[in-house]
Design a protein around this nucleic acid. Structure first.
Length: 232
DNA sequence: AAGCGCGACAACCGCCTGCGA
DNA sequence: ATCGCAGGCGGTTGTCGCGCT
């Protein structure tokens, strides 16, 4: 891999949310060259990001086989079982959930399931002397899980800073199954990227971002935009 | 209408491990 | 044997949007 002279003084490391341009650069670079040493990848691609940041972004969001949102009751149950088995070994748990990332599972656990457990503990204290059967989030079957905890969300949209992004919130309660299911995507997208992808420097300086409520895209849509990947 | 609090999630930080020089 | 680097991993924080008051 080509190495360029580079020092921290020459290049300010960017932090914070990734922009669409950065995503495109990273995706195209990996499409062209594959994954490699992340630090040099970041430099070679011209990204002002650390290798770690690039790796995280790729593994958690940009990989074509990553599934986002819509944790099914089966997955929730599996997460509970695996957590009971492995503890906070999120990467281990993630290995049993194809397309799910450790970060997503970790967040899911902390925001949803842990809350459940806390509520359960509170109930346990309150009803410690009663005959009422306490909810056991770890050993519970999905039928025991309050419906409010079952994630009914659709795929989470990717949002970009500076755009008039739609909410990524999942409070609407509307079951909205996105037409591009991740499984379908996985089957139609593989990591053997066909050649002739454009180089990062060929990207327009200002990527055309849809200037309205649709100013975000699903990664499925992202990968379904061959003109962005191969320059058509 | 504005402010506040909360939930959800993206991203960073720091530590640990493995590997090559 | 040890030192440095890169990657992996879990914990934590920051940000944003929504609902409530």
């Amino acid at each position: 891999m080509e190495k360029k002279p580079w020092s921290s003084q020459e290049q300010v490391v960017r932090k914070g949310p990734w922009t669409m341009e950065e995503d495109l650069i990273l995706v195209n670079y990996i499409a062209n060259h594959g994954e490699g040493v992340w630090n040099s990848l970041a430099r070679s691609a011209g990204l002002k990001r650390t290798g770690k940041s690039c790796r995280l972004r790729w593994l958690n969001y940009l990989r074509p086989d990553v599934r986002r949102g819509n944790i099914t009751p089966e997955e929730q149950l599996l997460i509970m079982e695996l957590h009971a088995k492995f503890g906070n070994r999120w990467s281990k748990i993630a290995k049993h959930l194809p397309g799910r990332t450790d970060n997503e599972i970790k967040n899911y656990w902390r925001t949803r399931i842990q809350k459940l457990i806390n509520q359960s503990n509170a109930i346990t204290v309150r009803h410690s002397n009663s005959s009422e059967r306490n909810f056991d989030p770890v050993g519970a079957s999905t039928s025991q899980i309050p419906t409010s905890t079952i994630d009914e969300t659709c795929c989470s949209p990717i949002s970009y800073p500076g755009t008039d992004q739609s909410s990524t919130s999942q409070m609407s309660g509307v079951v909205d199954i996105h037409p591009h299911q991740a499984v379908e995507l996985t089957s139609s997208t593989n990591m053997n990227f066909p050649g002739n992808y454009i180089n990062p420097e060929d990207f327009p300086a200002s990527f055309p971002i849809v200037p309205n409520e649709n100013a975000w895209i699903f990664m499925e849509d992202f990968w379904a935009m061959p003109h962005l990947l191969n320059g058509d």
